[in-house]
């Protein structure tokens, strides 16, 4: 991935910055510029997610793609926020066998991948189990 291609998404990826439709209230992460429900009647604005959610489904990747060299096994999950937005990320600081559908999780800033030994390091948000208190 070229540097500008990654750079232009940093604000969204580092800060869980998505969008929300001012007309119907639907929140989007990853961000969308058009609300599918309202289309031209919508008014989509920037919206920051808090970084909490729950696991909708997950898998443990054991055959790694070249971009994730040396990282397997790692857990990929679809997470739903309290606003109803769903996105894909990784779960960390949890044993793969302990992951469950419905598990509450929270955001943590991590390295995602690197473009080879001399390439750019990509950062972003992964998720860990919410500390119970």
């Amino acid at each position: 991935m070229t540097v500008p291609r990654f750079w232009r998404k940093i604000d969204n990826r580092y800060n869980l910055r998505g969008t929300r439709c001012g007309n119907c209230g639907t929140a989007f992460f990853p961000p969308r510029r058009i609300c599918p429900g309202c289309r031209r009647d919508g008014s989509v604005e920037t919206y920051d997610f808090e970084g909490r959610g729950e696991v909708i489904t997950f898998t443990v990747i054991r055959a790694e793609p070249p971009s994730m060299d040396g990282q397997t096994p790692y857990v990929v999950a679809i997470i739903e926020t309290p606003e109803g937005a769903r996105f894909t990320s990784q779960l960390v600081d949890v044993e793969p066998d302990d992951v469950e559908i419905g598990m509450p999780v929270e955001a943590t800033f991590r390295k995602i991948a690197e473009d080879g030994a001399d390439g750019v390091i990509h950062y972003g948000v992964k998720f860990e189990p919410t500390a119970r208190d």
Partner: peptide, 30 residues
Amino acid sequence: TEILAAASDTEWESFYGATFPGLYAMMARR
């Protein structure tokens, strides 16, 4: 594997390490 993963959302699925088998595995789990 990487070429086929381009059939998913490159910026918001495969970027986070979701492979094509991984995406179908999440459907299977559900």
